[in-house]
């Protein structure tokens, strides 16, 4: 069974962490994954850096830029991941924009993903219809799950459509914003989480964007399977270094 599906089936209060590969140092990638695993996170999204990350805020723009300056590229990332499955058994997802994947060659990319033990992908600028027509068969051939996003603007009929074709989890974008805007969940967000919860979707949901603390993590877990934290994690590394990862995860899980 795909590790993502197994994780979603067995766990609640899932904490998933996004980080940018090749940041802060080129060789940080596998070290961060191993540390995250040890600190008890349930799932990891490895960000494949892109020069023009359209849906990302300042933090991920900055980490992507530095990672690219450090020399990260797609081949190197796969190289950094080649022994990762010796030590890490939680689901690993690559999150990246379409162009670098397109240039690598979609089939070669998926094949490489499978060979290093990647379980799924999140590609924000790959719309579902194009995926279903042109990409799905290749993803399936290499046992990769594609995870789609929904936002507060997504119409009910489209949510149903995405749910029908969803393979892993539905990535619930918490508010109408790019990544890294940390505000409190307002009434509107809660209503939207509730609406999704009451739709009895067949796909599990994980909430992301703008989550940075225990309070938001708890709320997210009440309305879904858990949450994804990205910008706040990267900000913490920027400020406190890799040694602080354990503490950061503990603060999110159990602040006391």
């Amino acid at each position: 069974m795909n590790r993502i599906i197994k994780c979603l089936k067995e766990k609640d209060n899932i904490l998933s962490i996004y980080f940018t590969a090749g940041y802060p140092k080129l060789e940080s990638t596998s070290k961060i994954i191993k540390t995250l695993k040890k600190s008890g996170v349930d799932m990891i999204e490895i960000g494949l850096p892109f020069s023009d990350p359209l849906s990302d805020g300042k933090t991920i723009q900055m980490s992507s830029k530095i990672a690219l300056e450090n020399g990260i590229n797609t081949n190197l990332l796969f190289d950094q991941l080649k022994d990762i499955r010796d030590e890490v058994n939680i689901p690993l997802i690559i999150m990246g924009y379409l162009n670098p994947i397109f240039q690598f060659g979609l089939e070669s990319f998926c094949e490489k993903c499978m060979s290093v033990g990647i379980d799924g992908l999140i590609i924000p600028d790959l719309p579902i219809d194009i995926y279903l027509n042109d990409y799905k068969k290749i993803f399936q051939k290499f046992n990769l799950l594609n995870n789609f996003l929904v936002t507060p603007q997504t119409k009910t009929s489209r949510i149903r459509y995405i749910d029908k074709h969803s393979e892993g989890f539905i990535y619930v974008v918490s508010s109408s914003s790019i990544t890294g805007s940390t505000k409190k969940f307002d009434r509107e967000s809660i209503d939207y989480f509730n609406k999704l919860k009451n739709m009895n979707l067949s796909s599990p949901r994980i909430i992301g964007f703008g989550i940075s603390n225990n309070e938001n993590f708890s709320i997210a877990s009440r309305y879904s399977k858990g949450c994804i934290i990205g910008s706040a994690f990267i900000k913490n590394i920027e400020k406190n270094g890799l040694e602080s990862i354990n503490n950061f995860i503990r603060e999110i899980r159990n602040p006391d």
Binding site: D125, L149, T151, Q153, V173, S177
Partner: peptide, 11 residues
Amino acid sequence: GGAYIPEMLLH
């Protein structure tokens, strides 16, 4: 051509 956009711009 086409529209390769994130879900956030779809609306």
